[in-house]
Structures are given as C-alpha cells and as structure tokens.
C-alpha cells in the first residue's frame, strides 16, 4: 500500500511540475499534433493507417504505404492519422482499436503480421472497413487483403541479376524464412535460372523461421552480404526491410551490385555512394494498393481483396540510376510480357 501511495504521489507531483514547466514555455506547439489536418478540401474521409514494426522512415515497405496515403490526401482530399506498433509488435490490435475509436472509416494494417489481430478487431467494429497489406486471406466481410505477386517482380530482378553478373555468382539475402520472403527468393531463383540454369543462387536468411528480427538488422545484412561478396558474388538481391541498407553498404565496400525491394531504393536510400550500387529494386506498389483502396472505398463504399501483379503494375522493377543497359531492359520487358501472357509461369514456392 505504501508503495502504491509512493507511485501515486510521484505522478501527482510530476503532473504539477510539468504543468508549471509547460506554462513557462508559452505553449506554441499545439497545432502540430495531427498529421493529416492540412489535407485538401475534398470529402474529408477519415483514414487510419497502422504501420508494420519499424514505422515510417524504413525507406522501404512502410514508406511505400505512406507515399500512397499521402497521395490520397493530396488528390482525394482525405484526412489521415498514422500509428506505429511498439518495437515488439505486441500492440497491433490496440493500434487498430485506437484508430477505430477515433472515428476512422477505413483502416489499413501494413504487413502480414496484422493477420489475426485485424480479424479480431474487425468483429468488434463491423462498420469499419479494414484493409490488410499482405497476408493470408480473411473470412471477415469488412476485411480486405491486398496481396502482391512478389514472385513475379522478383523473377524479373533475377533475370536482371543474371544479366548483370559476369561470373554467374549471385546471392539472395532474405529477412527470414516466412512465406512472404520465400516467394521473393523463389521468384528470384527462377528468374536467374531462366537466363542461365547452371547458376546456383546463394540463399541467406537473417533470421530463422518467421522471426521478424531479420527485418531490422542492418548489421546482420552487412555481414551476410560481405561474406557473399568476399566469395566472389557479384550481385545480391535483398528482401529484408530495414536490413537492406546493410547489404547496400557491403556492396559499396566491395564495388559490387545490389538490388533492393518494395520502394525504389535508389531514390529512397539517400546516400550517393549507395546509389552507385543499386541497379534496380523489386517494386512492390503498396502505395498503389493503398491509394486505390481508398479511391474504391470513396466511390463504392467497400473494398475487395485484390492480388496485384505485373499486369496491373502492382509489382515491377525500377531503372533509376540507369545502371542497366538498354539491352537488359529490353530483355526484362520481354520476360515481363511473357509472364503477363502466361507463357512463363512463376511459382511462389521453390
């Protein structure tokens, strides 16, 4: 009891002191709280967005989603609020509830890890439309799941990697061994094999099983890529979220090539030295999925689960930096058309 009193007293005193402190400071910081307030004059639809672990600023997956919702703010006049989970990702369901309680009509969960949490919360708020980026299908009526043919985009990066390499030594660095990253790896290897089926792709995962720590381990990515480059690997494709930067650094040290994921990482990496080594990125247009979901919701009041692939530019490859020759790009376009036409079937499993 005494201890409880101690705590309570501590908080009470602190509250008073903080009050005094802030009054001295003349406020002036009140009007910067909401992130989407200065949106257009559109219909003011309230959109909520909960990021994957790591939040805004990962220069990859989350930032792609952020780009999509910002475009919706500019072009459709929506207002939005964004939340990030705590580092261990244990409060995803609370983020969704917080957004739903805040009156948001359509709420995005970025990442397959929102799976069960989103289905649970969707039952509690039947009038709210939930949209999950990546993940298993949901049987809830108000949950739409947006998936991407990651394996198709990765196939093209595999083709590009095989064409960029001279010695035929190619590597893949994945964040973990989960289904999403397996699809990246499988598509990539099929793309490499399409050019030269004698090439063995070195496959390294930064974390075992579905452990998410590999997506936030730039040091681990660097060590893994360094080891590959030391062994003579010329091109590494990395699908490991925040860890990608480590792979780019290793590539810059070795003077070799690397390919990024999700966003156009040549544009987002923000370091000229690293730009020199990023010859392409597997584009996963999360931004398009987010924007189109909002657009559809405004016109139809409902969002359906969709799979984005090469045919609707939901996935693709980037050419920023002009590191790839015209000839390579022509070949990539050729492969792309073949996949769209169904002449080449890319599997998401090895």
């Amino acid at each position: 009891m005494r201890r409880v009193m101690k705590l309570a007293a501590g908080f009470a005193t602190a509250a008073l002191l903080l009050t005094a402190c802030a009054e001295d400071d003349d406020g002036g910081s009140e009007d910067t709280t909401e992130s989407g307030e200065d949106g257009g004059s559109g219909d003011g639809l309230q959109v909520g967005l909960a990021f994957d672990v790591g939040g805004r600023g990962d220069r990859s997956f989350n930032d792609s989603a952020a780009a999509g919702i910002e475009r919706a703010q500019d072009e459709l006049g929506i207002e939005f609020n964004e939340l990030s989970p705590n580092p261990d990702g244990s409060n995803r369901d609370e983020l969704l509830r917080e957004l739903a309680d805040g009156g948001h009509e359509i709420i995005f969960g970025i990442g397959y890890a929102f799976g069960e949490d989103m289905d649970t919360v969707a039952d509690e708020y039947p009038d709210v439309q939930f949209v999950r980026i990546d993940g298993a299908p949901s049987d809830k009526e108000n949950v739409a799941v947006m998936n991407f043919a990651d394996h198709q985009g990765s196939f093209l990066v595999g083709v590009a990697a095989a064409l960029m390499s001279e010695s035929g030594q190619i590597g893949f660095v994945g964040g973990n061994e989960g289904v999403v990253i397996n699809a990246f790896g499988a598509g990539f290897k099929q793309g490499v094999a399409a050019v030269d089926d004698s090439i063995e792709v070195e496959d390294h995962r930064l974390a075992a099983g579905e452990d998410p720590s590999g997506f936030d381990d730039a040091a681990g990515g660097r060590v893994a890529a360094e080891a590959m480059y030391d062994r003579g690997v010329e091109v590494v494709f990395t699908a490991a979220g925040d860890s990608n930067v480590g792979v780019f650094q290793a590539a810059a040290d070795a003077g070799a090539w690397a390919a990024g994921t999700d966003s156009d990482q040549y544009e987002t990496v923000g370091d000229p030295e690293l730009q020199e080594v990023i010859f392409t990125s597997m584009l996963k247009r999360v931004d398009n999925a987010v924007f189109e979901s909002i657009d559809t919701y405004i016109s139809e009041g409902d969002v359906e689960s969709t799979v984005y692939d090469l045919s609707d530019d939901g996935v693709g490859y980037s050419t920023s930096g002009d590191h790839m020759s015209e000839d390579i790009i022509a070949q990539l376009e050729d492969y792309k058309q073949q996949i769209i036409d169904g002449e080449i079937e890319v599997s998401s499993e090895e």
Binding site: A14, C21, A22, G27, T33
Partner: peptide, 20 residues
C-alpha cells in the same frame, strides 16, 4: 519519477509537441 517525467517533458518540447 519526477525527474524522469520532467526530462521526458523536455524531450517532447524539443520535438515541438505539447508535454501537457
């Protein structure tokens, strides 16, 4: 505890938000 709250309050002021 008071010190911790005050220091955090300063951090929040630095990033331009309202500690209250």
């Amino acid at each position: 505890l008071v010190m911790a709250l005050l220091i955090t309050g300063v951090f929040i002021l630095i990033i331009g938000e309202n500690p209250l």
